[in-house]
């Protein structure tokens, strides 16, 4: 893949993320808190996360599913992101090693 192509994509994604960060602040003056768009945005993240996890588990196979499940449970118990990531990755490695 051409370096300039990758660089261009990174810049586009960087600008997109900044627009999301600054956009709410800039648009807040004209956005109704009780509008449909505001409600959709407020409700979207959890649903998007679930859909993303399902897609990831599907492509990661059984080891991926085990790792994701362990990460999720560890996070729910400890509320520590990197403990959850460590436990999940360890579980996925173990599952992969035993041929799952």
């Amino acid at each position: 893949m051409h370096d300039l192509t990758v660089l261009g994509v990174i810049c586009i994604l960087g600008v997109t993320c900044y627009v999301m960060r600054a956009g709410g602040y800039v648009l807040a003056a004209s956005m109704r808190d009780d509008g449909i768009a505001a409600r959709f945005l407020r409700l979207a993240p959890g649903n998007l996360f679930i859909a993303f996890i399902v897609g990831g588990c599907l492509s990661g196979g059984l080891a991926g599913f085990v790792g994701t499940l362990v990460a999720l449970v560890t996070m729910a118990i400890t509320a520590r992101e990197w403990a959850a990531l460590g436990a999940g990755f360890g579980a996925a490695l173990a599952a992969s090693a035993i041929g799952l």
């Binding site: 994509v9 586009i12 994604l13 997109t16 993320c17 999301m20 960060r21 600054a22 956009g23 709410g24 602040y25 800039v26 648009l27 807040a28 003056a29 956005m31 808190d33 505001a38 945005l41 407020r42 979207a44 993240p45 998007l48 996360f49 993303f52």
Partner: peptide
């Protein structure tokens, strides 16, 4: 690229609300 941009917008939509709140 288009799917990636849409994914960034969708998953970072919470920033719009955070930003709106920071305006307050």
């Amino acid at each position: 690229v288009v799917a990636m941009v849409v994914a960034c917008i969708a998953t970072n939509s919470r920033y719009l609300l955070m930003g709106a709140h920071l305006r307050q």
